[in-house]
């Protein structure tokens, strides 16, 4: 009998070691976090009771409050989300063009664009809202600008990637006819990124509807202001009304976006 004495291994030693190192680090950091985090155990075991109490106070929902102030606040929230998404495009399109390597070849412009895109994404929309509330005062303007500045990173990055993925054939054909820079952009690039463009913008709009609902907590307008006021007054039935309104608008926005995207793509 001549058995083949191969020992098969899926991973090399190096791969194994680095994987184990990741697992080890993860477990160590978890243990360290659990040991040092300040959690009062009584509060934790008390939580189900407190939650039940909270929901009991929220019931029944105060639907009479809807026409008084929730409706206007919801319209304001939608305005913030839509206007913010539109203003984003003013900044995001140039940055996306600068970031796409088939439009601008210089690495300098890539680095500049990437710097703006990354810093827009790293700062949370609530923090942007705090900054703009400090500048423009409380109100809808701060909300619109917070949404716009937060979305630039997302839209610019995805749009830049969409531009890089296009077929260069039509572009070369247009260049061969001696078309100007602007016509190449409008007749060569634009038709090809059109579906991606609308699906990115709609997707971001959907996210922005969610985010604009909370901006009011720091004073930037919308339904969040109503929510915050109701909570400060301990009017829990009004809080649940505002929460239901947010829930409905978010679901409706998602359904609308999914349906439009289905038609576009």
């Amino acid at each position: 009998m001549n058995t083949i004495n191969h020992h098969w291994q899926r991973f090399t030693l190096n791969q194994k070691l680095s994987r184990y190192a990741v697992y080890l680090l993860l477990i160590l950091s978890l243990v360290q976090s659990v040991r040092t985090v300040e959690v009062i155990p009584e509060f934790f075991f008390d939580a189900p009771e407190q939650m039940a109490d909270l929901f009991a106070r929220m019931w029944p929902i105060d639907f009479a409050y809807y026409p008084i102030s929730v409706h206007d606040a919801m319209v304001e929230t939608l305005n913030i989300a839509t206007l913010g998404t539109l203003i984003t495009l003013i900044f995001a399109i140039p940055l996306a063009l600068m970031n796409a390597s088939n439009i601008v070849a210089s690495p300098w412009s890539h680095w500049i664009a990437r710097f703006f895109l990354v810093s827009s994404r790293s700062v949370n929309s609530l923090v942007w809202a705090l900054l703009f509330v400090a500048i423009f005062g409380p109100g809808i303007i701060a909300g619109v600008l917070a949404i716009a500045f937060r979305s630039v990173g997302f839209v610019g990055k995805l749009l830049g990637e969409a531009i890089e993925e296009i077929n260069m054939g039509p572009i070369e054909a247009l260049q061969a006819t001696g078309a100007s820079w602007m016509s190449i952009l409008l007749k060569g690039y634009w038709p090809q990124i059109l579906p991606a463009f609308f699906s990115i913008v709609l997707f971001r709009w959907d996210i922005n509807v969610r985010e604009s609902a909370v901006l009011g907590l720091v004073g930037a307008g919308g339904i969040g202001v109503v929510l915050n006021d109701a909570m400060n007054l301990f009017e829990w039935q009004r809080v649940s009304m505002a929460l239901v309104a947010i829930f409905v608008i978010v679901i409706v926005a998602e359904i609308v976006v999914v349906n439009i995207r289905k038609r576009l793509i």
Partner: peptide
């Protein structure tokens, strides 16, 4: 998925008090 984390955080802060526990939940 529907509610923004901040809204969920508010509810948890009201029910388990201020601090890291509400953030974790």
């Amino acid at each position: 998925r529907t509610f923004h984390p901040v809204i969920i955080a508010i509810l948890f802060v009201k029910s388990v008090g201020f601090g890291a526990l509400a953030g974790i939940l």
